[in-house]
Lab assay of single mutants.
Amino acid sequence: KKSYVLIKVKNPKTKETHTIVVPEENLEEVLKALASQPNVKVVDIERFP
């Protein structure tokens, strides 16, 4: 059974918020990819039960 993680990201320029759902096993690479985006800020990470 896969567990999923909900990542909320915000664009500081446009103030838009997006929610991305990723499998927990991919969380680290997704966070690394997001960290390299200049106008993306991770605001929240939630685990799915």
Rank of each mutant, 00 (worst) to 15 (best):
L31M: 04
L27N: 00
K10E: 15
T17H: 08
D44A: 14
K15V: 03
V9C: 05
I45R: 01
N39W: 06
D44Y: 14
K32P: 00
A35R: 11
L27K: 02
S3C: 11
I20K: 02
K15S: 11
K41I: 15
E46L: 15
V43M: 09
Q37H: 12
V42S: 01
V5P: 01
L27A: 04
Y4S: 03
V43W: 02
E46Y: 08
L6G: 13
V42A: 02
V30L: 07
T14L: 03
I45D: 01
K15E: 10
P23V: 07
P12C: 15
F48T: 06
L34Q: 00
N26A: 09
K8P: 00
E25R: 05
I45S: 01
I7V: 07
P23Y: 12
E24M: 09
T19M: 10
I7M: 01
K10A: 12
N26F: 14
N26T: 08
V5I: 05
I7N: 00
L31N: 00
K8Y: 15
V22Q: 01
V30C: 07
K13M: 13
V21M: 14
V9A: 02
E28G: 07
R47G: 04
L6F: 10
E46V: 15
E25C: 05
Y4W: 10
K8V: 14
V5A: 03
I45H: 02
Y4H: 08
P49M: 06
P38N: 09
I20Y: 11
E24S: 06
V9Y: 11
V40H: 04
V22R: 01
E29G: 06
K1H: 10
K32D: 05
Q37L: 13
N26E: 11
T19S: 08
D44F: 15
S3H: 15
S3Q: 11
A33Q: 10
R47I: 12
L27C: 03
I45E: 01
N26R: 13
R47W: 14
S36H: 07
K13P: 02
K8F: 12
T14Q: 03
N26D: 13
K1C: 12
N39H: 11
V9D: 00
N26C: 14
A33T: 06
T17E: 10
V9W: 10
N11V: 05
V40I: 10
K32E: 07
E25H: 07
I7R: 00
P49V: 08
E25L: 04
V42F: 03
E25A: 08
V9K: 00
K13S: 09
A35M: 12
N39M: 06
N39E: 08
E16C: 15
V43L: 07
E28V: 08
I45N: 01
K2N: 07
T14I: 02
P49T: 07
S36F: 08
K32N: 07
Y4P: 10
V43C: 05
H18C: 13
R47E: 05
Q37I: 10
V40E: 03
V9Q: 00
V21N: 03
N11E: 02
